[in-house]
Design a binder for these strands. Structure first.
Length: 800
RNA sequence: GCCUGCGUGGCGGAAUUGGUAGACGCGCUGGACUCAAAAUCCAGUGUUAGCGAUAACGUGUCGGUUCGAGUCCGACCGCAGGCACCA
């Protein structure tokens, strides 16, 4: 038996020394093909068997594409800014830079031990100044094109720790560190105008080949809704108060209005509102709650009625009461809604609690129990009476509103602008400077990168500012505009920033003049195939697409969508079918498996374990089965004779297998790819001897998933290394079988099988079917109604 | 609540457009080799009945379309993930 630890090293060294996996930018003799797998966050835990699954899948693809003659770009790098490295550094009192360096070292060694065919010449980390220089440069482009702005935004704030918390740290509305209640605090933050791109981000999906579930994830996140804005009037002042609704057909059923507690009109009307004290108290109450609590569903409706204020329904001219309640969000629509308690569940609950009348305008349901949201005949609705469906009613109402100038069609998106500031140390410094005279000024591009300074403490400050705020040497600078003393922005960029464009950098990773040259970008065009985790299909992908679309709009990248196929892999669960976690003690470490069974076995098993896009539990038993399979392939070497060509009896199966493997791989059915090769291996094993060429074919087909041992066995045969081999092709003529067994059914039940030949006419097949012994038994004495013959597939005899 | 995906042997899973359900692997049972074990090889393995040929049942449940349904349609149940007071 081969010593897998030895041969794995041998071939890993060979590939590296001979630059077998180097992508060549600009090579016109081959078609470029860019295969990408999400670069990992190099945590202290090391590589997870889940990483191995997606890396192997893409590695198989990369190796096949190379053998098919493509110029394959298959890069790897590190996404190393962000909270985990910072937390680790705080706990262990080491610089995050050093922690990251050590973790990258571990990750890289692990990846190399698995034989992935990455082009390591293109490796970089998002924390390299040579890289984040360009992240900062791109931020400046956002700023210069009016796409970055500062705005006051609520952040999660722990009053005990005096610290800004990420949504993860504030999960459940409680500070993860000290357990106190998290509140909202306003802070000035940098924002990117992502909501401007909502429509383009939906439309752009048509130019991609993302998996359907990935596309849907994007669409849901953007949350497009089509409705109308309707202008109401404050009776006392004549002020216009606009609401957004998707159900303008129910306008006759409006019995009150609800404003978000932060709605700006409240200040304007404060002199008229007689219970302003109560209003302010409620505003405080709403603010004291975390985003989590406020959006918690199924809680009781709360709110305050605005005394002294009423608004006029523009269509009935009747006055209705106005409330504020935290179930209306300032960030969506107009921050004001027309409430139709008869036909909206939330409005219904509110009306019941506050004793507001309920007016039914659509027939149906039982309004003593719940709001009726279905379709029905319109009633109590003036000119809409008698309409029977939503679609028509909405159309009619919209026409009326437009004609009278009191409303208009309006599309809204759930997608908000991207909060781009973090009050953290371990991130890209935002290259902006504040000058008392000139306001916010961008740094000069030639002064980039703005390096992170060395600090002793990484904890956020008492004021919630980034630890950078304490480094006065760093903070104090001069204004790039007027030269006066000025201060640097101390917030850093979010973790998502560096990962939003890293795939572009891989196309031209050593460029120190540009983030990537247009030549390189045009040569590679786009990522042909991108795999990653389910957890990133919504946000990471959306940020990356937004970033790219912006770069496209300012002429810096050649395509509006730079990712073509996107597929998300399922998780590798523990043997207990639970998510792997230290606390559950069900973690499988890939290093242990490589040591005990070899990299080829681990790779093969991870491809064989199940549907790539589905979660699968780990099974060491099944892993051993894959080891047995590879051992069997190895043992076949003893059967190799010195005859030329392929063994006659194997040709049909060999051609079938080449076709099957190609089909399997093209639809990412890695498990059936392996099983096809198991079938071929078993067929070889049934023979006394096989030819060199037979064996070489099997080794070539198996090479993408088990590259080390196949290289070794192939070398022993005297062939050139498989990393230079051509992918085999099949000949159609061997796929047509002269003889075939098909089933014969009587009344849909299989009763016999018969052998047919390709030349058999329908009548001959029919005759053969009727003569089958067990068929005779089932049709004798019965009337034959009809006989269905599907050539090459099945015969069905229908009897009575 | 909404959206998405998934329910097939003891287990992981096959079945590409409706056409022999359970490929391939694991596990298990029996046998060969061995002093013994490991490794390997051979045979069997959906359930029930039968020595057997074979028969009945069988892809979450109920119903439908069809000569024929794991696959298509309708209703429901269960599991997983995502979004969530979005007007």
């Amino acid at each position: 038996m081969l010593n897998f630890n030895e041969i794995e090293k041998k071939w890993q060294n060979y590939w590296q020394e001979h630059h077998c996996f180097e992508a060549v930018t600009g090579d016109k003799s081959r078609t470029p093909y860019y295969i990408l797998v999400e670069f990992p966050y190099p945590s202290g835990a090391g590589l997870h068997v889940g990483h191995v699954r997606s890396y192997t899948a893409q590695d198989v693809l990369a190796r096949v594409k190379r053998m098919q003659g493509y110029n394959v770009l298959f890069p790897m790098g590190w996404d190393a800014f962000g909270a985990p490295a910072e937390q680790y550094a705080i706990k262990n009192h080491i610089h995050p830079k050093d922690a990251v360096k050590a973790n990258i070292h571990t990750f890289k060694a692990q990846m190399q031990s698995l034989g992935f065919s990455f082009d390591w010449d293109r490796e970089f980390s998002t924390t390299d100044p040579e890289y984040y220089k360009w992240t900062q440069w791109q931020f400046l482009q956002f700023y210069k094109h009016g796409m970055a702005y500062k705005a006051k935004k609520d952040v999660n704030w722990c009053p005990t720790c005096k610290s800004v918390l990420s949504n993860e740290d504030a999960a459940g509305g409680v500070c993860e560190r000290c357990g106190s209640k998290v509140v909202q605090k306003e802070k000035e933050q940098w924002m990117l105008r992502m909501s401007d791109y909502a429509e383009d981000l939906i439309k752009g999906l048509d130019d991609t080949h993302f998996a359907d579930r990935v596309k849907l994830g994007q669409i849901n996140w953007i949350g497009k809704s089509t409705g109308a804005e309707i202008d109401f009037t404050v009776q006392e002042t004549g002020d216009k108060l606009t609401v957004y609704t998707t159900r303008c057909d129910t306008l006759f059923g409006v019995t009150f209005m609800v404003l978000a507690p932060e709605h700006p009109i409240l200040e304007k009307l404060s002199s008229l509102i007689t219970n302003m004290d109560e209003v302010r108290k409620y505003q405080e109450f709403a603010k004291s709650k975390s985003a989590f609590e406020r959006t918690e569903v199924n809680k009781d409706k709360t709110g305050v009625k605005l005394e002294g204020i009423t608004v006029l329904n523009p269509i009935t001219n009747k006055a209705v009461e106005v409330f504020i309640s935290d179930y209306v969000m300032m960030g969506y629509g107009t921050g004001a809604i027309m409430a139709v308690p008869a036909h909206d569940q939330r409005d219904y609950e509110f009306a019941k609690k506050f004793g507001v009348p309920i007016v039914q305008v659509i027939e149906g349901g039982d309004l003593s129990r719940e709001a009726y949201t279905g379709d029905g005949k319109m009633i109590n609705s003036g000119f809409l009476n008698g309409f029977t469906n939503k679609k028509d009613s909405i159309k009619k109402m919209l026409g009326y509103l437009k004609e009278k100038g009191i409303g208009r069609e309006k599309v809204n998106y759930r997608l908000q602008d991207w909060i781009f500031s973090r009050q953290r140390f371990w991130g890209e410094p935002i290259p902006m400077i504040y000058c008392e005279k000139c306001g916010w000024q961008p740094m000069k591009e030639e002064d980039l990168p703005l390096l992170l300074p060395d600090v002793a403490e990484y904890e956020p400050t008492d004021t919630g500012e980034s630890p950078l705020a304490k480094i006065t040497d760093w903070v104090n600078t001069t204004c790039p505009c007027c030269g006066c003393p000025a201060k640097r922005e101390t917030d850093t960029m979010p973790n998502w920033a560096g990962s939003s464009w890293y795939f572009l950098r891989f196309m031209d990773p050593h460029n120190d003049k540009e983030f990537a040259s247009m030549d390189a970008l045009k040569y590679w065009q786009k990522v042909n195939w991108y795999n990653g985790g389910m957890e990133h299909t919504a946000r990471h992908l959306l940020y990356a697409r937004f970033w790219v679309q912006f770069l496209y709009n300012i002429g810096l990248v050649p395509n509006k969508e730079m990712i073509d196929i996107r597929v998300s892999h399922g998780m590798v669960l523990g043997p207990d079918n639970q998510k792997m976690s230290k606390s559950k003690g069900n973690v499988i470490n890939p290093d242990d498996i490589v040591r005990e069974y070899g990299a080829d076995t681990l790779r093969t098993y991870e491809m064989f374990m199940g549907d790539y896009q589905q979660d699968v539990p780990w099974s060491t038993e099944s892993l051993r089965g894959c080891k047995r399979f590879l051992d069997k392939v190895e043992r076949l070497s003893k059967k190799v004779n010195d005859k030329d060509g392929f063994s006659e009896g194997l040709v049909v199966l060999q051609n079938k297998t080449i076709k099957a493997v190609g089909d399997n791989l093209s639809r990412m059915s890695y498990n059936t790819y392996i099983s096809s090769l198991m079938i071929l291996t078993n067929a070889y094993d049934d023979l006394e001897e096989i030819t060199k060429e037979d064996y070489h074919l099997l080794l070539t087909l198996l090479n993408p998933v088990a590259p080390h041992m196949t290289e070794e066995l192939n070398e022993a045969l005297g062939y050139e290394p498989l990393c230079y081999a051509k992918w085999p092709t099949y000949d159609e003529k061997y796929l047509v079988e002269k003889e075939k067994e098909i089933a014969v059914q009587v009344n849909g039940k299989v009763r016999a099988t018969i052998m047919i030949s390709v030349d058999d006419s329908e009548d001959v097949i029919k005759e053969k079917a009727m003569k089958a012994e067990n068929v005779i038994r089932h049709i004798s004495g019965k009337e034959i109604v009809k006989v269905i013959v599907i050539k090459g597939k099945i015969v069905n005899i229908v009897v009575k």
